[in-house]
Each structure stands twice: as C-alpha cells, then as structure tokens.
Amino acid sequence: MVDSKHQWKAWIYLLPALVLILVFTVWPIINTVRLAFLENYNMMTALKGAKFNINFNNFIKVVQYPGFKSCLLNTVLLCILTVPISTVLALLIAVALNSIKGLQKFLQTVFFLPYVTNSIAIGMVFAAMFNMVGNAYGTQNEIIVTAGIINNIIEFFGGTRVNWINVGSSYLANMTVMVIYIVWNALPFKILILLGGLQSINKQYYDAAKIDGTRKGRILTRITVPLLSPMLAYVIITGFIGGFKEYTSIVGIFGEKLGPADDAGRLNTMVGYIYDSLAGKHQGRASAAALILFGIILVVTLINLRVSKKRVHY
C-alpha cells in the first residue's frame, strides 16, 4: 500500500493543517520558552534590534511582583473550593437523576442548560443578583435603594444582608460569590459525564446488594463510587485544569477591574496576570508566568493521575 504516490498525496491533504499548526502552535511553544529566559524582553524594542540577556530574571520578577501572590492565592483557593464542591454536588445530582423514572429526561435537560451559556453574560446576571444599588455602604450615611434579590431572599428567611460585591465588600463575600458562580457553571459538564457513567454500570451489582439488604449509603460508597471512579477521576482532573485557568468568570462578575470598585484587581488570577503583563508589553514576564502556570498544571495533573491510579477501579 505504501508507495511514493500515496505518500505525496497524504502530505498534500495534511498541508493546510500542518502549516497552521507550525505557525500558531509549534512556534509559540518554542518561542515562549525562549522569551521567558530573555531578560525584560519587549517586542517593540526587539524589532528595533535590541539584545537581551539570557537569565532567570523574568521568573524572579514574576514571583517578586506584589500582585503575583494574590493572583496565585486566588487561583489556588478557587480551585480547591470549587472542584470538590461541584464534584460532590454533581455526583449527588447524577445519582439522584439515575434513580428516578418520572421527569428524568426533563430534569436532565434543565441541568445541562448552564453549559450552553456565555460565561460573561451569565456572570453579569449573577452580578445583578448579588449587587446592591445605593451609596456609602457600611457608613452612617448609607443609603440602600435595593439590596438585590439574593439579599432580599436572605432577609425573607430572617438573615441579615451582606455586601457581596460592592464598594467596601469583604474578600470572603467576593470569594463566596465567585465559588457559587463557578460551581453553577461547572455542574452541567460533570453531571453529563457522571450520569453517562452511571447508566453504563451493570444492574447486577445493585440486585446483589438488594438481596443482601445493603443500606443505600453503603451502596453509594461501596458500589457506585468505585465503579464510577474512572469518570470521577476524569471530571476532577479536567476540573483542576479548568480551575487553574479561571479568568472570564471573574470578568463576568466584577468587570475588567477584577475586584470591587475600591479594590481593583483583588480577584485577579494567574491567567489574568499573564494578560496584564502582555497588555503592559512585558512579553518576557508574561512568558515566564505562562511557563509557571503550565508547570503548576502539569504537577497537579501528575499528582491527580498518581492518586487516581491507586484509587481508580476499572
């Protein structure tokens, strides 16, 4: 089969894809690594023929930059809060969906709905729901025209209202809103994968457990979760990878200031840091930050794979 005529033809078919991949995928991998080690690299001066020293200074600058620590902290916090919460919730919803007959198709459709949304647009809806309209929050002159629907609901149940995202809001309140929004956004994909996994589990395991009179909680932890572990590992790993790249959901809630009006940048993340450096024409620093992010994602994924190798039952 392999004759020279075929070979030639295959490369013609592959040509457009390969050219684009070389320019926009392979070259960036090489070039970004190169830029990361060129001290204070800047495209404009580079085009004019400037030379740059080769060293680790970009990495040092990234780590020493005052905003970097909070970007890293925000990213890590959002990851370790949203991944477990959304995974557990998605598991419970998927198991519940799998155990019912009536309304199953309808509810399944409802739970998939957030997937097909624009994360900036729906972030703005969440911002409107948590937002207070008024002035001088938390001072004696405070005027609150409307506290927002979420605060209205809290007050309806006898709670006190919280300044979630406005001027003077606390970091804790900001993070709570972000976690709620990200979990809301992350549920549909996880439910889809886990429900698919549940539906492929052999019913005989459950019949055997029923004959033995096993309790429902025990069935969940001893049969369902182990048999579902490959899918669980998959949603957790992709959840962590996505979590470390969190950025647009924050723009959705807080706008491009990435924080409440009196503390811009408070909720900035690693990806936001890379784009800030790029917008500030610090390509060298942006490259170093991107490599650091890649390193973090790689290490976390390897740890995840290692843990799941021990825990996943095929």
Binding site: T32, L35, I241, L278, Q283, F294
Partner: peptide, 10 residues
C-alpha cells in the same frame, strides 16, 4: 498545553 502559552507568541 494551556492556550495562554500560545497567546503570547501569537
């Protein structure tokens, strides 16, 4: 590889 890494060079 995360897309941000490509964005800088692109």
């Amino acid at each position: 590889i995360p897309g941000e890494l490509f964005t800088i060079t692109n």
